[in-house]
């Protein structure tokens, strides 16, 4: 898995990154253009799903799947390498970060004298933040990581 880091830029990555050349064998102009419009929408939607999962249907798993699907679409249109560059982090890194986040949220309980995985809450203004949300963020990252790991491995062949 070859990985090149893009130059760091302070601007929004999606807008200013040079459009990767369509790979001729999968080239579909319609898909390519549609993906560029869909990608930010889908990513936003995935975060919406993740946060909504707090009190309503949604959550880290489907949020992660939507995000992964968005990147997978991008890979379909522009090839696995381009998708890999878009991600910046390797899927493996996402899995590691996600597992670490989930583990950290699970360990809050034992550190405050309650059993493993106990939900702990704090109030920030009107906002209730708690370890279940942190756990869900972990799930979100793991799902994106694992799904893309599989998709990109298959796509690279």
């Amino acid at each position: 898995m070859k990985r090149r880091r893009l130059e760091h830029s302070s601007e929004v990555h999606l807008r200013n990154a040079p459009l990767p050349a369509l790979e001729w064998e999968r080239a579909s102009v319609i898909l390519g253009v549609a993906v560029r419009a869909l990608l930010p929408l889908l990513l936003l939607f995935s975060i919406f799903l993740l946060l909504r999962g707090h009190h309503a249907p949604g959550g880290g798993f489907i949020g992660g799947l939507v995000a992964a699907a968005a990147v997978a679409l991008y890979a379909l249109a522009y090839g696995a390498t381009a998708a890999q560059q878009l991600l910046r982090l390797s899927p493996r890194g996402l899995v590691a970060a996600g597992l670490a986040t989930a583990l950290a949220s699970a360990l809050v309980g034992p550190l405050t004298g309650a059993p493993f995985l106990t939900g702990r809450w704090m109030k920030v203004g009107r906002l209730e933040l708690g370890t279940p949300l942190l756990f869900d963020v972990g799930v979100f990252l793991v799902v994106i990581g694992v799904t893309l790991w599989i998709v990109l491995t298959l796509a690279e062949e």
Binding site: G109, P115, F116, L117, T118, G119
Partner: peptide
């Protein structure tokens, strides 16, 4: 001390 248990998530 005999069997022990913990209740995940309280």
């Amino acid at each position: 001390q005999g069997p022990q248990a913990t209740w995940v998530g309280n």
